Amino acid sequence: MKKYKITVYDEKTGEKHTIEIEMSEEELEELAKKLAEKHNVKVRIEKV
């Protein structure tokens, strides 16, 4: 498992949230996809 920083940005409201999380790359990609689809936000992932 690796550490990642996830930034979620909502273009409508301008809200931006960043968290650090430790998980596998596959789980992370699935999480990012679900966030983007369900909440209509942009998701950026960076390795820490």
Results as ranks from 00 to 15, higher is better:
22 E>L: 10
4 Y>D: 00
15 E>P: 00
35 L>C: 09
8 V>D: 00
11 E>Q: 14
46 E>F: 01
6 I>L: 05
8 V>W: 15
28 L>T: 04
25 E>R: 07
2 K>F: 15
39 H>T: 12
10 D>V: 05
2 K>D: 08
19 I>V: 07
15 E>T: 11
34 K>L: 11
8 V>C: 12
6 I>Q: 00
39 H>D: 10
13 T>C: 04
48 V>R: 05
45 I>W: 05
15 E>R: 10
11 E>F: 13
24 S>E: 10
7 T>I: 07
43 V>C: 04
11 E>T: 15
41 V>I: 10
18 T>L: 06
27 E>L: 08
2 K>A: 14
30 E>Y: 12
47 K>S: 13
17 H>C: 14
1 M>V: 09
33 K>G: 06
19 I>Q: 04
46 E>M: 02
43 V>K: 00
39 H>L: 10
45 I>Y: 03
17 H>P: 00
20 E>A: 04
18 T>H: 05
41 V>A: 07
42 K>R: 12
21 I>F: 06
3 K>P: 01
14 G>W: 04
37 E>R: 13
7 T>S: 05
46 E>C: 13
14 G>P: 00
32 A>S: 10
25 E>G: 06
43 V>N: 01
32 A>I: 15
15 E>A: 09
48 V>W: 01
41 V>N: 09
43 V>R: 00
42 K>Q: 10
29 E>K: 13
29 E>I: 12
27 E>N: 07
38 K>A: 09
40 N>Q: 08
40 N>Y: 05
34 K>T: 11
43 V>S: 02
18 T>I: 12
28 L>S: 04
41 V>L: 15
37 E>L: 11
30 E>K: 12
48 V>D: 04
22 E>C: 14
41 V>W: 14
39 H>M: 08
3 K>L: 09
43 V>I: 12
1 M>Y: 13
32 A>H: 07
11 E>N: 08
25 E>V: 08
8 V>N: 00
19 I>A: 03
6 I>N: 00
11 E>W: 12
7 T>H: 09
24 S>T: 14
39 H>Y: 05
4 Y>C: 01
1 M>K: 11
13 T>L: 03
17 H>K: 07
28 L>Y: 08
18 T>R: 03
30 E>W: 12
25 E>N: 06
16 K>D: 05
7 T>E: 05
2 K>N: 13
35 L>I: 06
47 K>P: 13
39 H>F: 05
48 V>Q: 05
27 E>A: 11
41 V>H: 06
27 E>F: 06
33 K>A: 09
31 L>V: 07
6 I>F: 03
2 K>W: 15
33 K>P: 01
22 E>K: 03
36 A>Y: 12
25 E>K: 06
16 K>E: 14
38 K>H: 10
43 V>P: 02
27 E>K: 08
19 I>F: 15
13 T>M: 03
4 Y>L: 01
24 S>M: 14
1 M>C: 09
24 S>V: 08
45 I>R: 03
8 V>E: 02
2 K>T: 11
23 M>L: 14
31 L>F: 14
32 A>T: 12
31 L>E: 01
25 E>P: 08
22 E>Y: 15
5 K>G: 00
30 E>M: 13
43 V>A: 05
3 K>A: 04
24 S>D: 11
41 V>R: 07
7 T>N: 02
47 K>A: 15
20 E>N: 05
4 Y>A: 00
15 E>K: 10
14 G>Q: 04
9 Y>S: 03
47 K>M: 15
2 K>I: 12
5 K>T: 06
17 H>Q: 08
19 I>Y: 15
10 D>Y: 10
21 I>Q: 04
34 K>Y: 15
29 E>T: 11
8 V>T: 07
26 E>D: 13
38 K>E: 08
38 K>C: 06
23 M>R: 01
19 I>H: 04
18 T>A: 04
32 A>K: 12
37 E>G: 13
28 L>W: 05
20 E>V: 14
25 E>W: 10
30 E>G: 08
6 I>W: 01
24 S>G: 09
36 A>E: 08
11 E>K: 13
33 K>N: 07
14 G>F: 04
14 G>T: 02
15 E>W: 14
18 T>D: 03
18 T>Q: 05
44 R>A: 06
8 V>S: 02
17 H>I: 12
38 K>S: 10
41 V>Y: 08
19 I>R: 03
30 E>I: 10
36 A>T: 11
27 E>P: 02
29 E>F: 14
16 K>H: 12
41 V>T: 10
39 H>Q: 10
19 I>K: 02
30 E>R: 12
22 E>R: 05
46 E>T: 07
5 K>R: 15
20 E>Q: 05
6 I>R: 00
33 K>R: 11
48 V>G: 04
3 K>I: 06
21 I>G: 05
25 E>F: 09
39 H>S: 12
26 E>S: 11
24 S>F: 12
45 I>A: 02
22 E>A: 06
13 T>Q: 02
23 M>Y: 03
14 G>I: 00
16 K>G: 08
46 E>N: 04
2 K>E: 07
45 I>E: 01
24 S>H: 13
28 L>H: 04
5 K>I: 10
44 R>L: 14
40 N>W: 09
9 Y>R: 02
35 L>K: 01
15 E>Y: 14
20 E>P: 01
16 K>W: 15
5 K>S: 04
30 E>Q: 12
4 Y>P: 00
26 E>H: 12
37 E>Q: 14
9 Y>V: 06
13 T>I: 02
5 K>Q: 04
17 H>R: 08
23 M>C: 13
9 Y>N: 01
29 E>D: 11
48 V>C: 07
21 I>Y: 05
2 K>H: 15
40 N>E: 06
13 T>W: 03
7 T>G: 00
42 K>A: 07
34 K>S: 09
14 G>R: 04
16 K>I: 14
10 D>C: 14
1 M>N: 07
14 G>D: 04
32 A>D: 03
17 H>T: 10
10 D>K: 03
12 K>A: 12
41 V>D: 05
8 V>H: 01
45 I>Q: 01
28 L>R: 02
9 Y>E: 06
7 T>V: 07
15 E>G: 05
44 R>G: 04
1 M>L: 13
12 K>I: 13
47 K>C: 13
47 K>Y: 09
32 A>Q: 10
16 K>L: 14
5 K>V: 07
32 A>P: 03
2 K>C: 12
8 V>Q: 02
13 T>D: 02
10 D>Q: 03
24 S>I: 10
25 E>D: 12
15 E>C: 10
7 T>P: 00
15 E>M: 12
25 E>L: 09
36 A>R: 14
6 I>M: 03
16 K>Y: 15
21 I>S: 03
14 G>E: 02
30 E>S: 09
41 V>S: 08
43 V>T: 03
16 K>S: 15
15 E>V: 09
48 V>L: 07
17 H>V: 08
21 I>M: 09
42 K>L: 09
4 Y>F: 07
3 K>F: 07
11 E>S: 08
